[in-house]
């Protein structure tokens, strides 16, 4: 072979064709890149800068470098005696966000796993219909779905009314504006994100393996535990991360269902740009949230790559 040397020379026609194609590709992508840079990536960089500036008195910033924003993420300085203590209010909100997101993920998994299995075992023709039923709520307004939950569980809502009518309870249970409400709402709105990837991996499930499991004396529970769950694990991981990430950054659901007190990270961030008037702190909190999400995202990508590797 004449061209075994690394980095072979392209012929002039090849070079022209390659250049034309890459120029075309770049030109086609440029307008979208400009808009995305201006209204998505660029602002994140600006925000990073803002997290190192000094807060202005009435919101906004003073253009002077300061580590105050980041400092306040973790520590609290008393206004009067200037003693420094751990910012327990912030940390408890971080903790609540993570805790509620994990609980939401688990609840969604408990509900989503059987549902995805149910869809995957339907006849091929009707599967698309069931999937469609899962997708519809996903594409409808998140605020409206949260609102629907709110109406159900409020003190004079349908659930309390029915329970009181049948004499199960005498006083309405306070469900709205609790952590339970937030968790219920997030499970409700993010459930499709659990079902869809779970279904994707269950659809590929080879039922001959399950037959083999039964053939080799496993009972139903053991087939589920030793055969099905290991086989669909990629779907479980994918679904869990897809539910966990938006839960962690949730803003609308905790605001509507949690009231003013039961804040999550999203609401804490909003507070800094509203009454809190500490933009650098808000920016630093946002970046912290982004970092946690990035780590989860990285796990997700790793999981995807591992599956691809196993399939090949």
């Amino acid at each position: 072979m004449n061209s075994s040397a690394p980095g072979r020379q392209l012929s002039s026609v090849e070079r022209v064709a390659l250049k034309r194609e890459s120029r075309r590709n770049i030109l086609l992508c440029t307008p979208a890149m400009i808009v995305l840079f201006f209204a998505a990536s660029g602002p994140l960089l600006v925000m990073l800068v803002y997290s190192f500036l000094t807060p202005g008195d009435y919101g906004g910033v003073v253009y002077k470098l300061s580590s105050d924003g980041w400092f306040r993420v973790f520590f609290h300085q008393d206004i009067f005696d200037e003693t420094v203590s751990v910012a327990s209010a912030h940390l408890s909100i971080f903790w609540r966000s993570i805790k509620l997101s994990l609980l939401t993920t688990i609840a969604a998994l408990i509900l989503g796993f059987p549902t995805a299995y149910f869809i995957a075992t339907r006849p091929v023709k009707s599967r698309n219909f069931w999937l469609f039923l899962v997708t519809i709520p996903f594409w409808t307004n998140l605020l409206i779905r949260t609102f629907a939950i709110m109406e159900l569980i409020r003190n004079r809502g349908l659930v309390n009314n029915v329970l009181m009518k049948f004499g199960v309870i005498e006083q309405p249970i306070q469900m709205l504006y609790t952590d339970f409400a937030i968790m219920l709402g997030m499970t409700y709105v993010y459930l499709p994100l659990m079902i869809l990837p779970l279904y994707a991996s269950m659809e590929k499930l080879d039922f001959r393996l399950i037959e083999a499991g039964y053939d080799l004396y496993a009972n139903r529970f053991r087939v589920l535990r030793k055969v099905i769950i290991p086989l669909v694990k990629p779907g479980i991981v994918a679904g869990s991360i897809l539910v966990f990430i938006p839960s962690l950054g949730a803003f609308v659901t905790p605001r509507v269902l949690g009231g003013g007190k039961n804040m999550m990270l999203g609401n804490l961030i909003e507070l800094q740009f509203g009454q809190g008037r500490n933009w650098p702190l808000g920016a630093a909190l946002s970046i912290s949230l982004l970092l946690i999400v990035m780590v989860a995202m990285l796990l997700y990508v790793k999981n995807m790559q591992k599956n691809k590797g196993e399939q090949n």
């Binding site: 994140l44 925000m47 938006p246 950054g249 961030i269 946002s286 970046i287 982004l290």
Partner: peptide
């Protein structure tokens, strides 16, 4: 990116 993060970045 969580929507709230993009939202405050755009606000800024």
């Amino acid at each position: 990116v969580p929507e709230i993060v993009t939202a405050v970045a755009l606000l800024i």
